[in-house]
Design a binder for these strands. Structure first.
Lengths: 232, 232
DNA sequence: GCGCCTGTTTGACGTCGATCAAGGGCGTGA
DNA sequence: TCACGCCCTTGATCGACGTCAAACAGGCGC
């Protein structure tokens, strides 16, 4: 989850995502090279893209849809440590074995790059490495913000912050508000809460008139200032 | 906190830290350039190196000592989002304003690089950018491991994991065990716990014969297998 | 429409850790 | 040696969130 997530009009010729994507740094000859190693792929919601421990043989650009990055304890407890949106890099370069499990939350569209050719290409294009570095730093900053939330915030603050964050990141839905790409269980995994606590907090906010829930995953923010105040 | 923290014998000519440090990638002419812009500086324990919001005018290599990376809520609640050990990069390149407050936990020795010359130098040395990228990715992986701990683990698991982690990272103390570079309050800030809970858990582990506490900051691990089992 | 399945909500209760409040232990300086 | 201050420890209590259990709602095939 990069901290700033612009939505520029410009699109990448190879994989149709926004300028911040990897391929945005390349000029024509390099684009051809990238195009040569890239493969488009569509996966349905719920599909596991990579399992933790698998040999990491590729990276990808997320063209459309949302992915969750899940880290698991030995005893089965799980925590979502990242959410990936269109334009984000999927997988880690220079890592032999996947540390996290990646799961499609919606139908997703990927532009896959086999890791070996991609890394070779990066070696010859410092600008691309530089871009990846900036992204990695942004993702790190985001992870640290998240740590603060997990370590210090109470349930209502977590929920309010999450709802506001999702609004920033997701396309507005028809009829206002937005459509959450996950159920209550995944919200809990993101925030370090149980599904029951998530549900109760949402109900309380609905009762207080701060949000409306026309359907399970359709969220309407009615009182943004109040939510922002709770989020801190 | 990078995930793997080797202690190779080789040392950097410029700032006397281990091979993983920035300067380790450079050959002689570049080393000269780096040496030209680097400045050594010693700071006492407790000193604030950078405050959140300050213009970030330099980066540094940590030569010796330990730093904490603190992120603060608007209401004053704080969370330590990183600990920096010798060889780690201090500050973020490409960032105009510090996001976190950096505080020396022990007396520290820094090799300071003004950000502008450093970034220029990076532009001309892709290998250095590459190294920074790998480090950033390692730090990110570490942050995510930490997120799992903050979000899902109970107090005893947090404490046990922390004690084992610190043993890996710190020099052994005279008489066995190691010397913690922080007090109970900072431990709480790292783990998302209060000082009282930290103290109680340590007392309980001491009572159970798993650790010994010859002095406040001197830790002896007596039953590593048990601690590892609790840590999960 | 009817039942079933899955995901969500709600309630009752228990527990862990925060909070509030005293009491040490130890180093420092008079 | 004593007093002061700073951490740290310990105890009592409270509240938030997890756990267990049951009811409920929407989507889908029949």
């Amino acid at each position: 989850m990069p901290s700033d997530h612009p939505h520029p009009a410009g699109r990448c010729a190879v994989c149709a995502v926004r300028d911040s994507a990897l391929c945005a740094t390349f000029a024509e000859p390099e684009l051809a090279a990238l195009r040569a190693i890239g493969r488009r792929r569509t996966l349905p919601a719920g599909q596991i893209v990579v399992s933790a421990g698998d040999p990491a043989s590729f990276c990808a650009n997320l063209v459309s849809g949302v992915l969750k990055v899940v880290r698991e304890e030995h005893d089965g407890r799980t925590q979502i440590v990242g959410l990936l949106f269109p334009g984000d890099l999927v997988g880690e370069p220079f890592v032999e074995e996947a540390r996290d499990t990646l799961v499609a939350l919606t139908e997703i569209d990927l532009c896959l790059y086999p890791r070996q050719p991609l890394e070779t290409l990066l070696t010859h294009h410092p600008a691309a490495t530089h871009l990846l570095l900036r992204r990695a730093l942004a993702t790190l900053a985001e992870a640290r913000k998240w740590m603060l939330m997990l370590g210090r915030r109470q349930a209502p603050e977590k929920i309010a912050a999450f709802l506001l964050d999702m609004e920033r990141r997701l396309e507005p839905a028809a009829g206002g508000g937005y459509h959450l790409p996950m159920g209550r269980a995944a919200m809990g995994e993101v925030l370090g809460l149980t599904i029951e606590t998530v549900s109760r907090q949402l109900s309380a906010m609905k009762r207080a008139g701060m949000i409306a829930l026309p359907s399970r995953r359709h969220i309407l923010l009615l009182d943004r200032p109040k939510l922002a105040q709770i989020a801190g």
